[in-house]
């Protein structure tokens, strides 16, 4: 079977954490055994000062992945050239192991809405998204990953399934995909899809990273559960089960614990990372012959520890 790790860029197939300013001092003192740290690119677009100092110190000790939230790849506006240039400066400065963005839009006619907004899946939107992904990869000079979204609505004109849409983008542009398993669960509950079918249809050969995060529960117009991708709590039991299933079938992948709101103390995040790591390590040690990359990843873990 195809192993995933050779597609995972420079990130180890281990559990990573989102980097939060409040935790940096403790991380630098403790040097916890975390496979990598991921940062939101937009938080490091100031000229200098503490954020860059902190990220530089972390980058000395751990692999870092860069996760963009503001490119608006799914939008109608042309990509913001100034924003692409800012991203390029970050990529040059920190040489991240990976860069990822979202299948979503956030800017329209120059107004930035600070949310990952949905788009219909049609041949027209597919062509637009592919143009945008091509442009990002060309400007940044790397193979990006595109993340599946959490969605709360559907569009009456949609003609392609989300997994078909993502597979087409990866096939046409050569980009990789970021599989957010919490987003799969959230969207499947909200859209009344089967998560097992969704994952069976997902083009796993392109996946270079996994995200796990917590969600909240609301209700929709008809009083049914509507899940909200809130990143404010532990990963849900059903999401852990889906994750374990993905890893058992496809092997270990770099896996990020996302927790962005109601931020807990670092040990709580480390517990979540250890839980992911237990699932990942079971599939690093059994079944597949470790590739050079995996060995490097294990060394990375030991060094970080």
């Amino acid at each position: 079977m195809t192993t995933m790790s050779d597609l995972a860029g420079g990130l180890p197939a281990a559990a990573g954490l989102g980097l939060k300013p409040d935790h940096v001092r403790e991380i630098l003192e403790m040097r916890p055994a975390v496979g990598f740290f991921e940062v939101h690119a937009e938080n490091f677009m100031g000229d200098g000062g503490m954020p860059h100092r902190q990220l530089s110190a972390i980058r000395e000790l751990y692999p870092v992945s860069l996760h963009g939230v503001g490119l608006s790849i799914g939008g109608e506006d042309p990509l913001d050239k100034g924003h692409l240039a800012r991203l390029k400066r970050l990529v040059e400065r920190y040489a991240p192991a990976q860069f990822s963005e979202h299948l979503a839009w956030s800017t329209h006619e120059g107004t930035y809405f600070n949310d990952l907004l949905p788009l219909p899946y049609t041949e027209q939107t597919l062509a637009r998204v592919c143009d945008h992904v091509d442009e990002v990869q060309e400007v940044l000079g790397l193979r990006m990953l595109l993340e599946n979204p959490s969605t709360y609505v559907a569009f009456s004109e949609t003609t392609l399934s989300e997994t078909e849409f993502l597979a087409e983008i990866a096939g046409r542009t050569g980009c990789g995909l970021l599989l957010d398993v919490n987003n799969v669960h959230v969207s499947c509950v909200n859209q009344q899809w089967s998560p097992q079918d969704y994952l069976a249809d997902f083009p796993m050969q392109h996946v270079g990273e996994i995200h796990l995060g917590g969600h909240a529960q609301d209700t929709d117009d008809l009083g049914r559960p509507l899940l909200i991708d809130s990143h404010d709590r532990e990963v849900d039991a059903q999401v852990w089960a889906l994750f374990a299933d993905v890893i058992a079938r496809h092997g270990s992948l770099p896996t990020l614990i996302e927790w962005d709101q109601a931020l807990p103390d670092l040990p709580v995040l480390l517990d979540e990372a250890r839980r992911a790591e237990a699932i990942l390590s079971a599939h690093r040690l059994s079944g597949h012959r470790p590739s050079g990359h995996r060995l490097a990843a294990d060394q990375e873990m030991r060094r970080a520890g």
Binding site: P120, Y152, V153, A154, F155, Q191, D220, D221, I228
Partner: peptide, 20 residues
Amino acid sequence: GVVGPEGQPAPRRFSVYRNN
């Protein structure tokens, strides 16, 4: 054209984005 799973208009679902 912004709808719920059965194709019905979904103002409450859309308001999740408005609130976010």
